[in-house]
Simulated scan of single mutants.
Amino acid sequence: MTASRQKRNAWLKKLAGLADGADKAQEDLLMGIYQARQDGVSYADVAYGIGDKSPSGIPAKVEKGRAVLEKRKGGTE
């Protein structure tokens, strides 16, 4: 069974919107990690808060969050 052109286009539009939302949510999470570390929250507490098993990956996420925040402050999203 194949979907009509209208259904397919509607779903493509919906899926693209969901994917964009997921990308924004991931960037928001990275910014939150960066901001939590700026407020003095430990790597272990950040890892626990986001459900990571180990705090060893948090420093990389902090840097990515800093980059996202700088990008957004610059007005280019």
Score class of each variant (00 low, 15 high):
50 I>F: 07
64 K>V: 00
49 G>V: 10
18 L>W: 00
74 G>M: 11
16 A>G: 10
49 G>F: 10
56 S>Y: 07
9 N>V: 10
7 K>P: 09
58 I>S: 04
24 K>Y: 06
61 K>E: 10
48 Y>C: 08
56 S>R: 12
65 G>L: 01
41 V>D: 07
27 E>Y: 00
1 M>T: 14
39 D>E: 11
10 A>S: 09
45 D>W: 02
59 P>A: 03
8 R>P: 14
13 K>F: 07
31 M>L: 02
74 G>A: 12
65 G>H: 01
30 L>A: 12
76 T>L: 12
50 I>P: 08
34 Y>K: 05
29 L>P: 08
73 K>P: 00
62 V>H: 00
47 A>E: 05
26 Q>Y: 02
54 S>E: 06
8 R>C: 14
51 G>L: 01
36 A>W: 11
55 P>I: 03
2 T>I: 15
26 Q>D: 08
66 R>T: 02
55 P>M: 06
23 D>H: 11
2 T>V: 15
9 N>Q: 14
18 L>H: 04
71 K>E: 08
57 G>Q: 02
25 A>M: 11
20 D>F: 00
17 G>S: 07
47 A>T: 05
1 M>N: 15
25 A>H: 10
16 A>Y: 09
65 G>N: 01
35 Q>T: 14
22 A>S: 13
10 A>R: 11
67 A>V: 04
46 V>L: 03
11 W>L: 12
36 A>R: 13
51 G>Y: 02
58 I>D: 05
5 R>Y: 06
52 D>S: 14
11 W>D: 09
16 A>W: 04
71 K>D: 04
77 E>D: 14
34 Y>I: 03
66 R>W: 02
63 E>Y: 04
59 P>W: 03
12 L>I: 03
15 L>R: 14
15 L>P: 02
60 A>S: 15
35 Q>A: 15
2 T>Y: 15
16 A>F: 07
62 V>D: 01
60 A>W: 12
71 K>Q: 11
71 K>N: 04
34 Y>R: 08
23 D>V: 12
20 D>V: 03
51 G>W: 01
56 S>N: 12
11 W>R: 14
42 S>Y: 01
44 A>H: 10
62 V>G: 01
32 G>L: 06
57 G>W: 00
40 G>H: 01
7 K>G: 13
15 L>G: 03
4 S>A: 03
61 K>I: 06
75 G>T: 02
5 R>L: 12
51 G>E: 01
58 I>A: 05
18 L>Q: 11
41 V>F: 08
34 Y>M: 04
14 K>A: 08
41 V>G: 09
12 L>W: 00
59 P>R: 05
13 K>C: 07
55 P>N: 07
51 G>A: 02
38 Q>P: 09
7 K>M: 15
57 G>P: 00
54 S>D: 09
42 S>A: 02
21 G>T: 12
6 Q>G: 04
37 R>A: 09
52 D>E: 15
10 A>N: 10
42 S>T: 05
1 M>D: 15
16 A>S: 13
50 I>Y: 08
57 G>K: 05
3 A>M: 14
22 A>D: 12
28 D>T: 14
45 D>K: 11
36 A>E: 10
28 D>M: 14
56 S>K: 14
18 L>G: 05
48 Y>S: 14
28 D>Q: 14
53 K>P: 13
46 V>W: 05
72 R>N: 08
77 E>M: 15
32 G>R: 09
22 A>L: 13
11 W>Y: 08
41 V>Q: 09
14 K>F: 00
43 Y>H: 06
63 E>T: 10
20 D>A: 12
